[in-house]
């Protein structure tokens, strides 16, 4: 069943055309990625979804026009509050929803082991490593029990090894929870490892240049054969991306 559906969504900032005709859909329990070059307007799309900015076009959720409070949003950097202990960061979304802090803590505490954070409930965020901070941020995101997760380059700030470990961990987590999720990334390997489907965006103004299904079984890091198939898909996507954004067009580069 289709949960989120976007049709011909556009966004301009003054004369700057950022999003041009974005159409996509995400079904229940599906993990979908939006893959595009830096500065393509991927984060703008998330701001449209969370209602931080207004754009044109049609955005529907479960068939009805999109209203707020559908998404649990995980920003690019972890955005943990340094003045709250890890457990109180995890309960933040529940507290904003009006739950008492005590009840929120009781709801969140049993999840710490699964997120590899057992024993760190009372630690300050500055005491955690980069990977642990991201897991704490994801914990804060999923306990909100919203209809859908929005993940904005969640591992972009991590070192390569930690990122690879986090991707495998997220894949396992997703397998057992089957969240409906939309991931923004510019990491082709990450998209292929985690997604059921991938929308490939062009450089700014962003439009969907191709939609790639990833029909590989999970977990995808199990066998060498799976890795080869994944690599073939990656290569195909890279070709699409590079063809859509040739270096001979320097004006389509980085935003700002």
């Amino acid at each position: 069943m289709t949960r989120l559906e976007l049709r011909d969504v556009r966004k301009n900032f003054g004369p700057l055309e950022v999003l041009a005709d974005i159409s996509l859909h995400v079904a229940t329990g599906e993990f979908v990625s939006i893959l595009g070059p830096s500065g393509a307007g991927k984060s703008t799309l998330f701001q449209l979804l969370t209602g931080a900015i207004q754009g044109e076009g049609e955005m529907r959720f479960d068939g009805a026009p999109l209203d707020g409070a559908r998404f649990a949003f995980m920003p690019q950097r972890d955005a943990l509050m340094p003045w709250r202990r890890v457990i109180d960061n995890a309960t933040l979304g529940l507290e904003v929803q009006g739950m008492k802090r005590r009840a929120a803590r009781q709801r969140v505490a049993p999840l710490f082991a699964e997120f590899g954070l057992a024993g760190f409930e009372r630690a300050w965020p500055t005491e955690l490593s980069g990977g642990m901070r991201q897991r704490a941020a994801l914990l804060r995101t999923v306990v909100q029990q919203r209809d859908m997760l929005l993940l904005d380059e969640p591992f972009g700030a991590l070192d390569a090894l930690t990122r690879a470990a986090m991707q495998r961990w997220l894949e396992r987590m997703w397998q057992s929870h089957r969240w409906t999720a939309l991931l923004i990334t510019h990491d082709v390997r990450e998209a292929v490892l985690l997604s059921d489907r991938i929308y490939v965006l062009s450089a700014r103004p962003a439009r969907v240049v191709s939609e790639v299904a990833v029909p590989l079984p999970r977990p995808r890091t199990e066998s060498a054969e799976l890795a080869r198939e994944a690599a073939a898909i990656e290569a195909g996507i890279l070709d699409t991306l590079l063809a859509a954004d040739p270096i001979s067009r320097p004006s389509d580069g980085e935003m700002k």
Binding site: T50, A52, G68, F73, P75, Q76, M81, V96, L150
Partner: peptide, 14 residues
Amino acid sequence: TSTEISQMLAAMGA
């Protein structure tokens, strides 16, 4: 205040 924290809180409905 970090804009990411503000945006996240706004997305939470604060």
